[in-house]
């Protein structure tokens, strides 16, 4: 058993477990915390796939910023804990069931579809492919090939900040 496989198994187990725990906890705050754990496990999986940048962004954006928003909303809604989990089957649930089935078909399809590619064969076939997910590569592409949209995005963010302040904080005469 290679070390890669062991790391994968641990991370996968943590991911699946935290996912199950997340949807079964009655307390929404607990659910949110397990969701963070799930994000962490996923970020670990990304690192084993040589996608460092996506892993860091996963932690910063999802586990960091978005989860703060989620917790904030939970706080604002002031949910009473110990909500009963059981609900009646309604038409809406059949819809969700259908979506879940479709997702299952997709998963089976993906597992069944074996391209024969492992990290080793990928390394042999195209040494370039492994570099794509690294911070170094993304940084250099961002400042050479895509420098224009990158800089334009910063102007967009500034405009959005100014706009938000005008909408929210401006004192009207």
């Amino acid at each position: 058993m290679s070390s890669e496989l062991i790391v994968f198994l641990i991370l996968a187990a943590v991911g699946v477990l935290s996912g199950i725990l997340m949807i079964t906890r009655p307390n929404p705050v607990n659910s949110a915390l397990f969701l963070i754990l799930n994000f962490m496990a996923l970020a670990g999986l990304y690192i084993t796939l040589h996608a460092q940048f996506v892993a860091i962004i996963q932690i910063l954006v999802y586990a960091g910023a978005i989860m703060v928003l989620v917790l904030f909303v939970i706080m604002l809604l002031n949910l009473e804990d110990e909500e009963p989990l059981r609900e009646q089957m309604s038409k809406r649930h059949y819809g969700s069931l259908l979506v879940a089935l479709l997702a299952l078909v997709l998963i089976v399809q993906v597992i069944g579809w074996n391209s024969g590619g492992t990290l080793e064969t990928m390394r042999e076939q195209s040494p370039h492919a492994l570099r794509i997910g690294t911070v170094e590569h993304i940084g250099s592409v961002l400042f050479t090939e895509h420098v224009y949209p990158f800089e334009l995005t910063s102007i967009l963010l500034l405009a959005a900040i100014v706009g938000a302040i005008v909408m929210a904080k401006k004192r009207f005469p």
């Binding site: 334009l152 100014v162 706009g163 938000a164 909408m167």
Partner: peptide, 9 residues
């Protein structure tokens, strides 16, 4: 987006 967002404001 840079065109639209300031216009919403």
């Amino acid at each position: 987006e840079l065109m639209s967002i300031p216009l919403y404001v």
